[in-house]
């Protein structure tokens, strides 16, 4: 009993911080979401709106497009980073690779760069008229690459930038997971005549599931709330081609000071994120409903 109390005592500071910075703001956002509140309105006070903000969201094509765009972005980056990260992890673990330690270090560097700096650097690389990317794409391939007029160019550049920044994180996670795998099941599978693909699919992937699940969740949640990198690269443009949900919420809450509607957007986005994560969890672990 005494031990249990001491345990709670140790947990108390972290619980308190989590309560103050996590739970309290969440309740506040939940509360604000039921009001029409814009500090630049004729009446700048909170006015009860009930579920009106949520009702409006369902018909708000800009919001829905932004959400859909974010899901497409998240799908592409998470899947690509997972595939690329796995290939790189295997390559960097290969004994035959000369200068392995050097490449591991170099490869990890993007993770330590702040997202805002990543966005600014990629913008400099890609800015029409001056950037080296449009210059060489035109020179070598005759492509008129322009992230400020072509929606596809901007969207794909946002994906590539995210891959450059975050694939090393996936690589490191998978390397840790692969290194920790026991050798016996792999050897057994080889003895049983399994080919490489079969060993990968039936032995490695199941054993890597906890690592894969954690990595996918982290990257999915990050991708769904991308703001700073995108803001620096395209500011959500051209037009609204890269206005992902995080950026859309920021624009509504801060420059537009539409706090009630912004709060409702945030909560709906959180709900979508939770549902997606749960579906993914169920798909990857084979769990159904509330069964254990």
């Amino acid at each position: 009993m005494r031990q249990s109390n001491i345990g709670w005592l140790f947990l108390a500071p972290a619980t308190l911080i989590l309560f103050v910075v996590g739970f309290v703001p969440f309740i506040y956002i939940l509360y604000v979401g039921f009001f029409d509140w814009n500090t630049n309105a004729v009446d700048p006070t909170l006015r009860w709106a009930g579920l009106q903000n949520y009702r409006s969201l369902v018909f708000d094509t800009t919001f829905l497009n932004s959400l859909a765009r974010t899901l497409v972005f998240a799908f592409f980056v998470v899947v690509s980073e997972l595939l690329l990260g796995y290939v790189l992890a295997r390559a960097l673990m290969a004994d035959r690779l000369w200068g392995r330690q050097f490449f591991r270090t170099i490869h990890t560097l993007p993770i330590v760069v702040a997202p805002i700096a990543v966005g600014a650097t990629w913008r400099l690389l890609c800015v029409p008229g001056f950037g080296i990317v449009p210059y060489y794409l035109k020179l070598w391939f005759g492509i008129d690459y322009n992230i400020s007029t072509n929606a596809y160019h901007a969207f794909s550049t946002a994906i590539i930038m995210d891959l450059w920044h975050w694939t090393p994180f996936v690589t490191l996670s998978l390397m840790a997971g692969l290194t920790a795998l026991p050798k016996e099941p792999l050897e057994q599978a080889q003895i049983d005549g399994g080919n490489k693909l079969q060993i990968f699919w039936y032995v490695i992937v199941p054993m890597l599931k906890p690592v894969l699940l954690t990595t996918v969740f982290i990257r999915l949640m990050d991708a769904l709330r991308s703001v700073d990198e995108i803001w620096m690269l395209t500011k959500g443009g051209p037009a609204e081609a890269t206005r992902f949900i995080g950026l859309h919420i920021w624009i509504n809450v801060f420059p537009k000071t539409d706090y009630g509607y912004g709060a409702a957007m945030s909560l709906l986005t959180l709900y979508v994120t939770i549902v997606l994560s749960w579906l993914l969890f169920v798909a990857m672990t084979g769990r159904k409903g509330g069964a254990q």
């Binding site: 007029t149 051209p238 037009a239 609204e240 420059p255 000071t257 539409d258």
Partner: peptide, 15 residues
């Protein structure tokens, strides 16, 4: 508030 509402239409005309 008006700027944030109107600007996207100007962006769309530009592209």
């Amino acid at each position: 508030q008006v700027l944030q509402v109107v600007a996207p239409f100007i962006y769309k005309a530009i592209v």
